[in-house]
Design a protein around this nucleic acid. Structure first.
Lengths: 151, 151
DNA sequence: TTTATTTATTTTACATGTAAACTATTTTTG
DNA sequence: CAAAAATAGTTTACATGTAAAATAAATAAA
C-alpha cells in the first residue's frame, strides 16, 4: 500500500505517532544521559526510587512496584538485585506470604533520590523552557485523558 | 527538597514530562506488541526498514541509517547482522571507502515492511481513535516545533 | 483433605541499549 | 610523503527489556 492509499485520518495519526515517538524518545534520552553522567544511574533506577519514595513506608511488593513503573516492567528481578547490591534498596520477607517480599529504599537510596529529583526538575524545566505554561497544562491534561482511551 | 520547594513552572514541567513518558511508552508498547505478535519483529526493526524504505535506492551507510533512527542508535551492528541473517536486508561494500558499506532492504524486507506499515497505520489509527483530527494536527505541529528547541 | 488452580516471583534464553576501547581506513597537516 | 587527526564500524562488557517456562506457595474446588 503506497502513501496515497492511507485515509486522511490515518495520515494524521501516523504523523502524530511519529512526532510523539521522536519527541518523547529524545527527551528521555536527554534526561537519561544527565542521570547517567551525574549519578551513574539511569531512568529505570530513577523510576524505581521514585515509586518507592511515594509508596507507603513499609514498601511495595515486586508486583505492586512493577505495576507502577513507567518504562521497564520486565526483568525487574535483576534490576532490584543490582540496586540492592548498590545499597539503594532493601528487601524484607513478608510474614503471611512466603512467595512475596517488600521492597523499600534505604537511607542511601532516599538521599540519592532526593538529590536526583531536584536536579531532574531543573533539567526538565530547562528542556521545556520554550513551552509556555498554559500550553503545558493543556497538553498534560490532553495526554492524561488520551492515555485512558488507550486501554 | 520536598514538593513544596518546586517552582510553579517546575511542577508543570514535571507533570508534562511524566504524562509524556507514560503516554508515549504505553503507545509504543501497544504497537511493539502488535508487531511482535503478528510479524515476529519489533519496533527497532520496523524503524530500520522504514528508514531504508524511504532512502535512496542504493541504500544507506550504517552512519546515515543510525542518524535517522528514532530509538535505537547503539549496537546497530548486531541488529543489522540479525536482520541480514533473516534475509530482510543486504550489505554492499563501498568502492571508494573500504571502512564503510551500504545497507538496503531486500525484496523480502520490502514486502514485509509494506505489510507491516499498512497494519501499523490501522493500529495507530485505532489507538488514537478518541482524538479529533484538529487536535492531532495541532499537537503534532507543537511537538515538532518543541523538539527543535531540545537541541 | 487431596487435587487443581491461581498467584508471585525467578529463571532461562535471547534481543536490544550504552559506553568505552579498539581496528582499519581515510583525510589533514606540516 | 610521514605523522597526526578524524572518521566508520566493530568489539567488549555489562545493563536492561521480552517472552515463555519453571518454581514455590497460597487458595479454591471437588
Amino acid at each position: 500500500m503506497t502513501d496515497g492509499n492511507y485515509t486522511k485520518r490515518q495520515k494524521e495519526s501516523l504523523k502524530l505517532w511519529i512526532e510523539l515517538l521522536r519527541y518523547s524518545n529524545k527527551l528521555e534520552q536527554i534526561i537519561d544521559n544527565k542521570i547517567r553522567y551525574n549519578y551513574g544511574q539511569n531512568i529505570s533506577r530513577f523510576d524505581v526510587l521514585s515509586q518507592l519514595d511515594r509508596a507507603k513506608p513499609e514498601g511495595l511488593t515486586v508486583g505492586e512496584l512493577a505495576g507502577q513503573l513507567i518504562a521497564s516492567k520486565g526483568n525487574i528481578t535483576g534490576l532490584l538485585d543490582r540496586m540492592q547490591k548498590d545499597g539503594l534498596i532493601e528487601k524484607e520477607a513478608k510474614k503471611n506470604d512466603r512467595r512475596s517480599y517488600l521492597v523499600r529504599h534505604t537511607n542511601k537510596g532516599r538521599a540519592l533520590f532526593a538529590e536526583m529529583a531536584e536536579k531532574n526538575a531543573q533539567w526538565v524545566e530547562t528542556a521545556l523552557a520554550d513551552i509556555d505554561i498554559e500550553h503545558m497544562k493543556e497538553f498534560a491534561q490532553f495526554l492524561s485523558k488520551s492515555r485512558n482511551s488507550l486501554d
